[in-house]
């Protein structure tokens, strides 16, 4: 059973001064599943991401990814082990072309970054791979456009493309549909499901849209004021009285 767990978090706490953004959180994320992390604003979701992916050091606790202790490892080392993330705000290389956005990540994964004098154009395999990724995301037509000129929804897809290009074993998406129109949200949800089916990558997603959460997640984690309030299948979470009381209210029935 242990082998099914890809990310294991034990007793994780993070304090800023006296304020605890996370308090003693222990969760396991199963390989090959889509897990959703939910909780009201300020529940500690983004801090959870930042601590796990090496942006912050945890105050206490341990993070194990694929059997390796990655607690306090710097961000680039976490990424190299195959744990990648996207960001809540659009976080791409705005002035570079869409293709270059993906290529940067591919260069990093294939350890070609210290090749100093050979032109990027001669790396056929990298460019083909970038093309495949853009095609999968439906962005191939925009490959040569400067990223900042894309529509908002497309920028968010580039964001996912950057994560995808680093050959992750697990992707942590931070509110991938934040600020999207209903159409864009639907497109994003379909895209995540498609990527999941095609690649089998494990996903952890924070999301505020409950419809999205309950339609795609296999398992749901609920954070509340920095503590893990509940975890379980969508059905269990729906019926959990503490979750209803603390966070969901009556909105689930709607």
């Amino acid at each position: 059973m242990e082998n099914d767990v890809i990310l294991s978090v034990k007793g994780l706490s993070k304090s800023f001064g006296k304020f605890y953004a996370l308090r003693d959180v222990s969760v396991d994320v199963k390989k090959g599943e889509i897990t959703a992390l939910i909780g009201p604003n300020g529940a500690g979701k983004t801090t959870f991401y930042n601590v796990i992916t090496g942006k912050y050091r945890p105050t206490t606790g341990r993070v194990v990814f694929e059997g390796r202790d990655i607690t306090s490892l710097p961000a680039h080392k976490v990424a190299r082990l195959g744990l990648c993330r996207s960001f809540q705000i659009t976080n791409i290389f705005q002035e570079n072309t869409v293709e270059e956005n993906i290529l940067a990540s591919l260069v990093a994964y294939h350890r070609k970054g210290l090749s100093l004098f050979k032109g990027l154009g001669s790396y056929r395999a990298l460019r083909e791979e970038a093309h495949r990724i853009l095609e999968m995301l439906g962005l191939a037509a925009h490959a040569q456009e400067v990223a900042k000129n894309l529509a908002y929804g497309d920028k968010r897809l580039v964001e996912i493309g950057i994560a995808l290009a680093s050959h992750p074993k697990m992707i942590m998406l931070d509110e991938p549909t934040a600020g999207m129109t209903p159409e864009e949200t639907e497109r994003m949800v379909k895209m995540v499901q498609k990527l999941f089916q095609k690649t089998g990558i494990t996903f952890l997603i924070t999301e505020h849209d409950m419809k999205v959460v309950f339609s795609i997640a296999h398992k749901i984690l609920v954070l509340h004021q920095g503590c893990l309030l509940a975890q379980g299948s969508p059905q269990e979470i729906r019926n959990n009285p503490r979750v209803r009381e603390a966070y969901l209210g009556g909105s689930l029935d709607a």
Binding site: N101, V107, S115
Partner: peptide
């Protein structure tokens, strides 16, 4: 070169590059 691409990406967004 690929190195140059990484430099330009760092110019745009160093944090993203480390991730």
């Amino acid at each position: 070169s690929p190195f140059g691409l990484i430099l330009r990406s760092m110019r745009e967004n160093p944090e993203r590059v480390s991730f």
